[in-house]
Design a protein around this nucleic acid. Structure first.
Length: 326
DNA sequence: TGTGCCGGGAG
DNA sequence: CTCCCGGCACA
């Protein structure tokens, strides 16, 4: 049903935007909002586009945070390779590599220069609108009203507009002047979007509603609260946070193309991870005794395959070399 | 893609 | 035991 999907799309837009509104110009949520727009166009048509949209939806909905169970009604099948690695990814997922180059979008290398919108987004006016202030000016189909709830610890203020919420956060929590120009582009606005009508709660997609505020959205909060940072901008990844919290939704683990093929967001393993350093798992201290495998040349390399009889027996048996120990 | 070697199997 | 190899981690 196209209509259902469209609503699902809207709901997903909301879901993603609520992942802690990090208003940074290159933020992924912003990118996603662009995607939402194109998705809406897509889902307006019939046939393959709908299937595409369904697949896309499914991909998005299986984002690590959002959900426990992907909606079974939307089959991921058409996009084929997107979920090839589905079952396996739960046990071992090396987060650092993109296995098929074409879709990874450039990491925000120029976060420090927020003055100009980045090229891929520059044409979409609505996207820029989102970037600089109002996350959801778009009209919603049904009768749900959108409210914005502040996620700062022990605040929970609910306002009806995102700009109001941003102002609230800026003044109350960040200690800024209300009328000051906000455009240093690196503020962290943690608030969530609430759909105040139960309308959409009944359909399955409601399970996609983001995560309870306390669980994951503002990972760096306690820190911010404690060290009482002055108006200096503190990005979550800059602060001293627990390693696990690094798998937070807005960290570098997701990526989406604004207009290209949509892949499932990259996952960060929160559990069952292998002990390997990766983008999402800094290093769990020093309890991991990762043996780096010393760089000494062993029999095989020294004598070569052709002189195998010169190898030490261990090397011949493919065991740890005894002649050239580390 | 090559190297080092663990785990396990055959005899 | 000795001898060998599949397969994985890593560079």
């Amino acid at each position: 049903e196209p209509r259902l999907q469209q609503e699902g799309g809207a709901s997903l837009c909301g879901a993603w935007q609520s992942y802690g509104q990090r208003i940074s110009k290159l933020d992924l949520t912003a990118v996603f909002s662009v995607f939402c727009l194109s998705f809406r166009k897509l889902s307006g048509k019939a046939g393959i586009d709908e299937v595409m949209a369904a697949a896309v939806l499914t991909s998005l909905s299986t984002s690590p945070l959002v959900l426990g169970n992907p909606p079974g009604t939307l089959s991921p099948e058409p996009s084929g390779e997107a979920w090839k690695e589905g079952p396996a990814m739960s046990s071992s997922y090396s987060s650092s590599s993109n296995n098929s180059g074409d879709w990874s979008w450039d990491p925000p290398s120029d976060r420090s220069t927020p003055s100009t919108p980045s090229p891929p987004l520059s044409t979409d006016t609505e996207a820029t609108h989102f970037l600089f202030g109002d996350p959801i000016p778009r009209k919603r189909k049904n009768s749900t009203k959108v409210m914005f709830k502040c996620l700062w610890k022990s605040c929970g203020k609910v306002l009806s507009s995102s700009s109001g919420m941003q102002k609230h956060i800026r003044t109350v929590h960040l200690g800024r002047k209300a009328d000051l120009d906000q455009s240093d582009g690196e503020e962290d606005f943690y608030y969530t979007e609430l759909d105040v009508n139960v309308d959409s709660l009944t359909d399955g997609l409601s399970s996609l509603t983001p995560v309870s505020p306390t669980s994951s959205v503002p990972p760096a909060f306690p820190v911010l609260e404690v060290q009482r940072t002055p108006p200096v901008l503190v990005k979550p990844e800059d602060s001293v946070e627990s390693p696990l919290s690094h798998s937070a939704p807005t960290s570098l683990c997701h990526s989406l193309l604004p207009s290209g093929p949509v892949r499932p967001p990259r996952l960060c393993q929160a559990e069952g991870h292998r002990v390997r350093s990766g983008a999402c798992h800094p290093d769990l201290g020093s309890q991991v005794s990762a043996k780096p495998r010393g760089e000494a040349k062993k029999c095989r390399k020294v004598y070569g395959m052709e002189n195998r009889d010169m190898w030490c027996t261990a090397c011949r048996w493919k065991k740890a070399c005894q002649r050239f120990v580390d």
